[in-house]
Design a protein around this nucleic acid. Structure first.
Length: 427
RNA sequence: GGACAGGUGGCCGAGUGGUUGAAGGCACCGGUCUCGAAAACCGGCAUACCGGCAACGGUAUCGUGAGUUCGAAUCUCACCCUGUCCGCCA
């Protein structure tokens, strides 16, 4: 959500941000309406408050007269009349404010200056690590997974539906190993606090991080209880300190959690959906950071580094992609995707998306901190990224570390949790 | 799910219709004292919005939302949350 002052004082920056996202046509009318409503709102507030001030004077006069056992009928009648006017004025103000909030909640974050303008064709590869195997040099993960008994897509579909996966045997254990290895790395070496969070959250929480109100159709919900299944642990973690004021000494601060993630993925059938590439329910280890606004960009680099470290230890070649404005998510001001090449699928798989959300989410969720030495509370800067998402890492491991006989070599990083060096048919 | 008891500022905690934005304490900031620190003492210290270049003025906020009233932290209703007991239960 944007500050009203953004609409008032920095409309040009707002418009320019939307233009770079390729969405000026969509948002120009919204911004225009917001500007008009802001003017209406201020005029109405001034009028209402003037009446209220007058009433407060009369009311105090009534109090004085009553205490002196004097007749207070005249000021009481005047205050009553003012009260009627106030009710009428507020009735006009309420819909204006509601509509204004609705509009502000609907406008995406403004991309940072170094984010390329345009759609995804303007995404920029900023660095690469390792050498990917040639396309076709390995069987796709769904074949290996079936052969080695790691994946049971048919029964996943039977018990839940298409896009739900059952992992079995060493496959199931591999996910558990990923969770342990990643969480230990982030907590042990990078200083994150480990959390275990609810996967079902309320409407205020979903609004805080930006999933609602705009993307309600993309979410699974429990209608009777007005709860939603989280699409990522970013949602509960970022909302941990909703409506709170932190101390400056608390920042920067990092949290990590493994959780299930639920995505309806409506309308995305067919594209890159084979095997476990795009599923309705998956698990991942999430990283969330809070910091002071000035540290946002530096913190993003750190965060990306933490996610990259996982890929390096998994010995999976990857590239870091700076997303263009049009490909950057709603709440994000700048995003790096980490992509691993999948030789069996013949595609780069997004295994992490690391974003700095500036004060966009903090404003929605009202997460503030008190600066060093006191002073006015400021909104924190929030960041999030996967570290990493399991299914595509699972796929990449099965393909990249696949040996000619169809078995899969395990990187040293995972061996303590797997109790073996290789996943093969024999076991 | 049922019965009680509660939800007040960064934290604790007074306050049951009329200068209460709200006593007191803690924490924090500044000062006196001290070589320095601690202690003690003095002073300051909520948030948001509106108007104003500013000084400052105004409005709102005591879980949330309605209501009663000239006036609500205080009364009424609904809802949410917390605690305790009961029921149920992985």
């Amino acid at each position: 959500m944007h500050d009203l002052r953004m609409v008032r004082d920095q409309v040009d920056a707002l418009r320019e941000g939307m233009r770079r996202r390729g969405k000026l046509d969509q948002f120009a009318p919204v911004i225009d309406e917001a500007e008009a409503l802001d003017r209406e709102r201020r005029a109405a507030i001034t009028a209402v408050e003037e009446k209220k001030a007058q009433r407060n004077v009369l009311t105090q006069e009534v109090g004085r007269l009553k205490k002196a056992m004097a007749d207070a009928e005249a000021p009481m009648a005047a205050a009553r009349a003012l009260g009627d006017e106030i009710v009428a004025l507020e009735a006009r103000l309420a819909p204006t404010e509601a509509r204004l909030t609705e509009l502000l909640l609907d406008i995406p974050n403004i991309p940072l200056a170094d984010v390329p303008a345009g759609d995804e064709s303007h995404n920029r590869i900023v660095r690469e690590w390792g050498t990917p195997r040639a396309e076709g040099s390995a069987k796709p993960h769904w074949e290996v997974g079936a052969t080695l008994g790691l994946l049971d897509l048919e029964r996943g579909a039977k018990v839940a539906g298409s896009g739900f996966v059952v992992y079995r045997g060493a496959g199931a254990r591999l996910l558990r190993a990923l969770a342990n290895a990643m969480l230990d790395l982030h907590t042990g070496e990078f200083g994150y606090e480990e959390l275990w969070v609810p996967t079902l959250v309320n409407r205020a929480t979903m609004t805080g991080t930006g999933q609602l109100p705009k993307f309600e159709d993309d979410m699974y919900g429990v209608k009777d209880d007005d709860l939603f299944l989280i699409p990522t642990a970013e949602v509960p973690i970022t909302n941990l300190y909703r409506e709170e004021i932190l101390a400056a000494s608390d920042l920067p601060r990092g949290f990590t959690a493994m959780s299930a993630c639920f995505r309806r993925e409506a309308g995305s059938a067919g594209k890159d959906t084979r095997g476990v590439l795009r599923v309705h329910e998956f698990h991942k280890v999430e990283l969330v950071r809070y910091c002071e606004p000035e540290q946002g960009e530096a913190e993003l680099e750190r965060l990306v580094g933490h996610a990259e470290a996982v890929l390096q230890r998994l010995e999976l070649p990857y590239r870091v992609v700076l997303l263009a404005a049009g490909d950057t998510g709603f709440s994000s001001a700048k995003t790096y995707d980490l992509e691993v090449f999948s030789p069996g699928v013949g595609a780069w798989l997004e295994v992490s998306s690391c974003s700095v959300c500036t004060d966009f989410q903090a404003r929605r969720a009202n997460i503030r901190y008190r600066p060093e030495g006191g002073g006015k509370p400021r909104f924190v800067c929030t960041l999030n990224g996967s570290g990493l998402a399991f299914p595509r890492v699972f796929a990449a491991l099965l393909e990249h570390h696949q040996r000619p006989d169809g078995s899969v070599a395990l990187p040293a990083f995972l061996r303590p949790w797997m109790g073996r060096d290789v996943i093969d048919v024999a076991r």
